[in-house]
Amino acid sequence: MQFDSFSDFIAMGGYGFYVWLSFGTCALILLGILVSSLNDTKRIMASVQQQADREARIQQAKQEQQL
């Protein structure tokens, strides 16, 4: 460990603002693209499900008509 205390670690020898600004924005951007990619998967699969449900309903309606 290079730092004697936690507050020393946060201070980064006076450069705390710049170091934490860099690491903070980096983490935010990485998380941002990760979450947005996960959301895309969910959205696409939801629309596939929706389409499947719709087709099932149409099928069912057709069968009911025939009866």
Binding site: M12, G13, Y15, Y18, V19, S22
Partner: peptide, 11 residues
């Protein structure tokens, strides 16, 4: 550069 160089690890 003291501790400011630590940005190198993501830059």
């Amino acid at each position: 550069q003291k501790d400011s160089y630590r940005i190198i690890f993501i830059h």
